[in-house]
Structure formats: C-alpha cells, structure tokens
Design a protein around this nucleic acid. Sequence first.
DNA 1: TAATATGTTTAGAATATTGTAAACACTCTA
DNA 2: TAGAGTGTTTACAATATTCTAAACATATTA
Lengths: 170, 170
Amino acid sequence: MNRNLERAQDNFIEGIGHLSSTLGFSKVMGQLYALLYLSDKPLSLDDMVKRLVISKGSASINIRELEEKGAVKRIWMKGSRRNFYEAETDLAKIIRDRIALSTRWRMDEIRDIIQKSEELIQNVKGDSNNSEERRRIKFYSQRLKEMKRLHKRAHNLLGKLLLFTKTIKF
Amino acid sequence: MNRNLERAQDNFIEGIGHLSSTLGFSKVMGQLYALLYLSDKPLSLDDMVKRLVISKGSASINIRELEEKGAVKRIWMKGSRRNFYEAETDLAKIIRDRIALSTRWRMDEIRDIIQKSEELIQNVKGDSNNSEERRRIKFYSQRLKEMKRLHKRAHNLLGKLLLFTKTIKF
DNA sequence: TAATATGTTTAGAATATTGTAAACACTCTA
DNA sequence: TAGAGTGTTTACAATATTCTAAACATATTA
C-alpha cells in the first residue's frame, strides 16, 4: 500500500484511538472503528489485526463491543468463511444512542440513591433526641429534596433534548 | 453523631462516590463533594479525613481538584487556621460548565485530527500511481469531508444547546 | 526559637484495566 | 475423519490509576 496514504490513515487512526480512550472506551476500539471508517471495503478480523499490529484476542473482544454499540456491522461475504466488518457511518445516530443510554442509567442511578436515602432518613426522624441533631436531619432532608427537584428537571430536559436532536439532520 | 443519620449519609456518600467514578472522576472526589453537600456547616480537611476514613494526602489532592472545577468553595473561618470547605450547591451550573469545557476540547481535538489528516492526504494526492490507489485516496478524502461536515454541525448544535440550558432554571 | 498545627508532596502499595500469546472450540472441506 | 481456517477464551504481563503513609514545608504561637 502507498506508504504516504498509510501514514495519513495512521494519523487519523491514532487520533480517534486517543479520543476513544478519553471517552471511556478502549484505545483499540477507537482504532478499529477509525480503520473501518476509512476503508472502502469491509475488513476481516485478520485484516485489522495485521493493519493495526494488535493481538487477535484484543481485536475479537473490541470488535464485538463495537458491534454491540451499533458502531460497526458484520458483513457476510459470499464465498468466505470470515466475518467482515463495516463502519456504521451514521455517526450522529451512534453518538445520540450512546448518550441516551448512558445518561439514562446515570439518571436512574441518581434516582435510586435519592430514593434509598429518603427511606433511611425517614427511619431517623423518629429518634431525634436533641435540637442540634434535629437541625442536621432537617438539613439533610432539605438537601435531598433539592437534589430530587434538580433530578426531575434534568430528566425532563434530557428527554426534550434527545427528542430535539432526533429531528435534526447532521 | 446519631448512628442512623450517619448511616443514611453514608448511603448517599457511597452512591455519589460511585457515580463520580463512572463519570471519570475519582471516587473520593465524589465522596468529598457528597459529604460537604449534606453538611450544614463548612468542614475542614481533617473533619473530612476523619469522617470518610481516608488519607490526608488523598483528601488534599481531591479537594483541590473539586475547587478547581468550581464544585466546592474554600471558606475562611474567623479564629481558625484551617481551611474550611463548602459545597457549591448550584449543581446545574457545575454540570453545565463541566460539559461545556469537556466537549469543547474534545471538539477541538477532533478538529485537529481532521485538519492534520487533510494536510497529509494532500501530500499523497500527487503520487497516485494506479487507479486502485486513486480510488482509496478519493475514498479517504470523501470520509474526511463527511466527518468535517458532521463536526461543524455538532459544534454549532452544542453551542446552541449550551446557550439554551443557560436560559433554563433548574 | 522551639514546638505545634496544618497542608502538600512523594514513594510505594494496592487495584483495575487492557493488551498479548497460546490454548481451545467450532466449522468446513478434502 | 483428519486437518486447516477462523474466532473465542483464558492466564498472564504490562500499564495506569489512585490511594496510603510518611516525610516535608510552611506558618503560627508560646
């Protein structure tokens, strides 16, 4: 392959790999995606292993995760027993789905923390002995209430934003 | 301190600590913030060290990061030599600023990757020997163009969204 | 100035993550 | 059915992160 073209691609692949790692994914995942994104035809696992000089195990695990996230598609090539892969190029969709999913379970996690805390604070309210403690308990309840309010509003806002981004063509 | 109140707080602190770690911050950072968020008065480093049973070094480093991110404020308490801290309770603002900042440099990173790749591909265009390679080079350029377009639109959209969230009261 | 109070830095331990190499399992075909 | 081709799993190695403990630096007070 043209040495300069390869170098140009490497720059892109490395960059996306780095970006991937700062987003909480592995570097290899980003590199695999970038390679497929630049490739004019589907690539097999061994193609990618050779091109990126990584182990097969790592390629196997990372490509599967990309597939689960909907970032790559498995392609059947007539006459070959290999699995081939292609990048899902609707990047906007991938990102949107990812954000929707990750914010959703984060919001749920927060909701659960608040809920559990509310239960626990209810149990305390009875046994307040002195005024100092009553103040603390009251303060805690107050903060929980604030956070609950913020959570609800953020939840609504996120829903609206996601709807909004779906109507937009990137 | 009331044992049950303490247990209730611990639940909250642990939850926020975990959330913090999934967001790319350290667990201790989240725990410190949560503790301050629930406290009805500013706390010193030693207060927090005792309450969370962590090392002073870790507390020192993590509280400083929280301060840099604008999530806690340092408070001067007349008559004490200690530094006291208080949670910044405008959570919406903290989150917004954080998102604005982190997306900004991610967008810049992507822009730089694309730009560098464009330069590199320019150098290749001259020495295309056969049609197979010309096709690949063309394909690569095409993809870069697509990504550039997406980047530009995402950039605009993000700007608008941030503006929008600033006008909203949480 | 000695002793104390306080926060910061650092060296290293503990832990988590992620990649590699090789064994493994499965499928196809000769 | 033996053997080759292909992807997956696993045990381990390399690396990065983050905490702790202790040394250190600085400021304050007696």
